[in-house]
Design a protein around this nucleic acid. Structure first.
Length: 616
DNA sequence: GAGTTTGAAACT
DNA sequence: CAGTTTCAAACTC
């Protein structure tokens, strides 16, 4: 490696100056280059250099104590390989015996035919002295070894220069030496059920910016890393997404043993499902796998591929879409969240995530809730149960999916709850419709009786007329509760008394109440709404035992919420559930997850149509 | 192997 | 932050 041994260090170009005036102070806390070793073992993080493999000279290794001494087969060199392509012992040995002329041996193949990394790449740098990230060796944190580079300074002999270069690089980008491919936030999810493999979901941290390669060539860092493009990418005409025909063609359809492919597929399924807004064209096929979906639109749709040019079919392209938006599918999905809705239909992103066993669980919840509703005596109660169901089901699924409401756009979460309410409404309607009307009347009478006794109790307590008390309490509750006046009309006044409403009616009511619901949900799904509803019932149907309880809750709620009147959100789920501004979402496994309060959702977009029950 | 294309990195 | 330049890998012939 004659040129690298440095007789002449052509101070050409800017490299000299850029490292010379570098203020190294900032990095001093990140790494002690004066020690010649990394400050910590690669497994202990969190220095930006934690992933920077550093090979130190034997002198440095011997003269400096190592915080984590390790048995080294080659005492001359201490290598801390952390690069994704772990160095083999042979490579380390080869490095140890360095400095060997890179041209003295054939350049090894860097990859196998299938793209699997085989050996450390060997650069061919000519102008960067291998001290820039252009150099793959340098970027991977390793010394050049057997490379074909010219004027290489990425070696032991030029450690000082290399060190400066590292510092300069870190100054520009503290994460420069960290792996570009990292586990996604969803990587903790157990995907075995989805793919049959224990998988890790990975994506490119920065994302690619490909314009011409379609992200299907190794120019693309995502493709090169054998991962799908993600929402981090700003690529154009991306074809590196799950379901891409072009991409699948590269795999020739045989993915039986291709774990990477499965990982990509799973990654896409999760990323696409969770990262997208859910606004999409009508579902084309019910029996598609999740991997075949991108925002509800089948990737078989030729127009979808042409979305790379961001000219989707009119029915899917949001009207506010900007040509400056990234055109990769995932990024589009994320952007769709912020785009104004148009004449589009909604297809739940959970449609392909929720599994049959999940549906069973969902149904069991609905059975319980509908049974509860059927036992109640008034349509108002059924509405309350519907609201309960909305809360419980939404929480159930959010918890089940390890998601939080804040994960989504408010529209997404809104639609999610909307669909939950549709399910609940339908179940309740079914359950209640089976009730014998006579039975209902009998129970109504009993309930009236109970209400009377409650009234008497209240009367004795307050020494006042029961009706007045109820009216006053509920009136004050209504005022203290931030529920709007429209609630009263939607909650009970328009409702046929003693007769359950149809799913459609309930659905409409759920729509109308959605905003209110978000702002005034109850700890158990009843309270917030119950307060308001109580007034309706008490005025129109007389008090019931439940109403009395609701009234009690109402009063306390009114008191507690007086201090929160300026914050509608704190009147909502979060506040009423925990009183701390967070929402405790019970997981199906019993774990309670604290969820930050959600932003108040915008008004429901009526043009968004909740699809059939199969979409949940 | 030379030339071209491509996109990340570096620079302005 | 956007546009431009530099650079080296990937690709084509």
């Amino acid at each position: 490696m004659g040129e690298s041994e440095g007789s002449e260090f052509p101070p050409k170009k800017q490299q000299q100056s850029e490292t010379a005036d570098f203020p190294a102070k900032k990095l001093a806390r990140q790494l002690d280059f004066t020690q010649g070793v990394l400050p910590d073992h690669p497994q202990s993080q969190p220095s930006p250099l934690q992933n920077l493999p550093v090979v130190i000279s034997s002198a440095a290794a011997q003269s400096q104590p190592q915080p984590h001494p390790q048995p080294q087969p080659q005492p001359q060199v201490v290598a801390i390989p952390v690069a994704p392509q772990q160095q083999t012992q042979q490579q380390q040995a080869a490095r140890a015996v360095k400095p060997e002329s890179p041209k003295s041996r054939p350049r090894p193949t860097s990859e196998l035919k299938d793209g699997t990394p085989k050996k450390q790449k060997q650069c061919n740098c000519k102008h960067s002295r291998c001290l820039k990230l252009y150099c793959e060796c340098f970027a991977s944190g390793t010394y050049c070894d057997g490379c074909n580079c010219v004027n290489c300074y990425n070696n032991v002999e030029n450690e000082a220069a290399r060190r400066e270069a590292v510092e300069a690089t870190l100054e520009r980008n503290p994460n420069a030496f960290r792996p570009k491919i990292a586990s996604s936030p969803h990587g903790t999810r157990d995907s075995r059920e989805e793919t049959g493999e224990g998988l890790v979901f990975v994506k490119h941290n920065k994302g690619c910016h490909c314009k011409k390669s379609g992200c299907l060539k190794k120019y693309c860092e995502c493709f090169q890393a054998n991962i799908l493009c993600s929402e981090n990418c700003k690529c154009m005409d991306c074809k590196n997404f799950e379901g891409s025909e072009e991409r699948q063609a590269l795999f020739h359809g045989d993915h039986g043993n291709n774990i990477a492919y499965i990982q990509q597929a799973a990654n896409a399924a999760i990323t696409g499902a969770i990262g997208s807004s859910g606004y999409a064209s009508p579902p084309v096929s019910k029996k598609r796998k999740g991997q075949d979906l991108f925002f509800g639109q089948t990737v078989k749709d030729p127009s979808f591929h042409r979305l790379g040019h961001f000219q989707p079919a009119g029915h899917i392209r949001p009207v506010a879409a900007s040509s400056s938006l990234p055109s990769n599918p995932v990024a589009r999905a994320c952007n769709a969240t912020t785009l104004g809705p148009s004449k589009i239909t909604y297809r739940s992103l959970l449609a392909d995530i929720i599994q049959p066993q999940d549906l069973k669980e969902l149904c069991s919840v609905l059975v319980v809730l509908s049974g509860e509703a059927a036992r109640t005596l008034s349509g108002t109660h059924q509405l309350l149960i519907a609201e309960t169901a909305k809360v419980e089901l939404a929480d159930l699924w959010l918890g089940k999916l390890s998601l939080t409401a804040s994960t989504y756009s408010s529209n997404w979460f809104r639609m999610f709850k909307h669909n939950m309410s549709l399910y609940a409404s339908y179940c309740i309607w079914l359950a209640c419709d089976q009730r014998n009307s006579t039975e209902m009347r009998v129970e109504d009478q009993r309930e009236t009786s109970l209400a009377s006794s409650t009234q008497e109790r209240l009367q004795s307590q307050k020494e006042s007329d029961a009706d007045k008390i109820v009216a006053n309490d509920c009136s004050s509750a209504n005022h203290s509760d931030k529920v709007g006046p429209d609630d009263s009309s939607s909650d009970g006044a328009d409702m046929p008394k003693g007769r359950p409403m149809s799913p459609g009616t309930l659905a409409l009511m759920c729509d109308e109440q959605d905003t209110m619901f978000m702002a005034a949900a109850s700890p158990n799904g009843l309270m917030g709404h119950g307060c308001n509803t109580s007034s309706q019932v008490s005025c129109g149907q007389g008090m019931t035992e439940a109403h009395a309880e609701q009234e009690r809750i109402c009063s306390s709620l009114a008191r507690t919420e007086l201090g929160n009147q300026n914050d509608p959100l704190s009147n909502g789920i979060a506040n009423t559930r925990t009183g701390t501004g967070s929402q405790q979402v019970p997981f199906s496994n019993g774990v309670v997850k604290v969820v930050p309060p959600t932003a108040k959702p915008p008004q429901m977009v009526t043009s968004i149509v909740a699809t059939s029950s199969s979409d949940i």
